[in-house]
Design a protein around this nucleic acid. Structure first.
Lengths: 135, 135
DNA sequence: TTGCACACGTTATACCGTTACACAATCGTG
DNA sequence: CACGATTGTGTAACGGTATAACGTGTGCAA
């Protein structure tokens, strides 16, 4: 199996959760995932949360803090997973995932100015996507 | 009749919740606030959440999405409340509140590039503050 | 073999937030 | 003033989010 994270050998539960997120068009909550996977043998929240923890760790899934939900990573390279920004449409729920070097630089610089050892950035922009913006 | 900002005439519950947050050294969860205010007559979560909603609306309090907690706004001017960034120490829980024009500009620009009508930015940086960073 | 690391399964519980309903105070306008 | 509209309040019940504390099984390395 080629390159990096994306080819981790996932366990059964991890694969099930990853599958649910990959097929979804938008973010899913852990409990929504659980409901979708009951027929596949998942019975308890913890089974989903454990899988999600690993998938986030592998860089395959992002957690959206402002939604308490999760999305599959859509980035090609999937690097800079810790500096990804999201635009979340309050109307249709769609999520745009972006990584921007200038933004990352600015955050890094701000952290340095404050002597803050930056580990992870949560950047979630709320508003209306192009399709949902009235003309 | 909201216009001032910082000197709003708060209702009783709002003042109680604001007081709890102002005295705290760090973020408080809604339930922690409730516990602290039981002796002052607050009995139910909703009383706290209603006050918090208003305080956030007034710009006196920030919600930290990645903590599910709330902090009193420490900014002098308290403008640009929708574009504030936070550095949250994973060790001691302290919160540094900053607003940065360059950062705000970059986010606005990214949103424009995506035709995204930006309403609110959630920017929460996790890591270690200066005091908690090993030398 | 023994110990360790890790995934898994289950129950119970804690924590976060809202819905629904009812009542009181306030305020603007006719 | 009287009326309705708005806003704040109080309570109970509930639903959504996440973890604690058990215990099991497996693979692997010392």
């Amino acid at each position: 199996m080629p390159h990096g994270h994306a080819s981790e050998a996932l366990t059964k539960n991890q694969a099930l959760v990853m599958g649910a997120l990959s097929e979804a068009t938008g973010p899913l909550s852990a409990y929504t995932i659980l409901d979708q996977l009951r027929d596949d043998g998942l019975r308890a929240p913890l089974q989903v949360y454990r899988a999600l923890d690993k998938l986030v760790e592998f860089g395959l899934v992002h957690r959206l803090e402002s939604l308490n939900a999760f999305v599959a990573c859509r980035q090609p390279g999937c690097d800079s997973h810790e500096r990804t920004a999201f635009m979340i449409c309050d109307d249709c729920g769609s999520v745009i995932e972006i990584t921007d070097k200038a933004l990352a630089r600015r955050l890094k610089s701000l952290a340095q100015d404050a002597s803050f050892a930056l580990k992870k950035s949560t950047i979630e922009l709320r508003g209306l996507c192009a399709a949902c913006t009235p003309m």
